[in-house]
Design a protein around this nucleic acid. Structure first.
Length: 104
DNA sequence: AACCTGACGACCA
DNA sequence: GTGGTCGCCAGGT
């Protein structure tokens, strides 16, 4: 799962459900959230690029601030995130293997 | 074992 | 748009 998330380029977004589905686990978005939650401190996994399907950052007190850090990191990647975590998901949604088109 | 709690999401009112 | 229900499943009590 982390390997997949690492493939999301800076400035692009993916949803929890999308990640789950790409791993062949349709309907298991919660487990993706669970896995990302385990990341603590410095990591090479760009966890901030995974948001919920509603196009919002999933805020939760249990995240102890990582939600706001997520907002900040996304802003730094050039994504416009509103004060309450809304973001233009349509415009930045990532899809794997579009490189195949470059071969044509 | 029986709840409860989530970085979730599809569906419907 | 928003809000509620239900399905999902790992972990904790």
């Amino acid at each position: 799962m982390y390997a997949l998330v690492r493939q999301i380029p800076a400035g692009r977004l993916a949803t929890y459900g999308q990640v789950a589905e790409l791993l062949g686990c349709w309907g298991r978005a919660r487990q993706v959230g669970w896995a990302l939650r385990r990341l603590r401190g410095p990591t090479d996994v760009p966890w901030q690029r995974v948001v919920n399907a509603a196009g919002r950052i999933s805020f939760s007190p249990s995240r102890e601030g990582s939600d706001w850090i997520q907002r900040q990191l996304l802003l730094e990647e050039g994504i416009e995130v509103s004060e309450d975590g809304r973001l233009p998901l349509r415009r930045y949604l990532w899809t794997p293997v579009p490189d195949a088109f470059l071969e044509l």
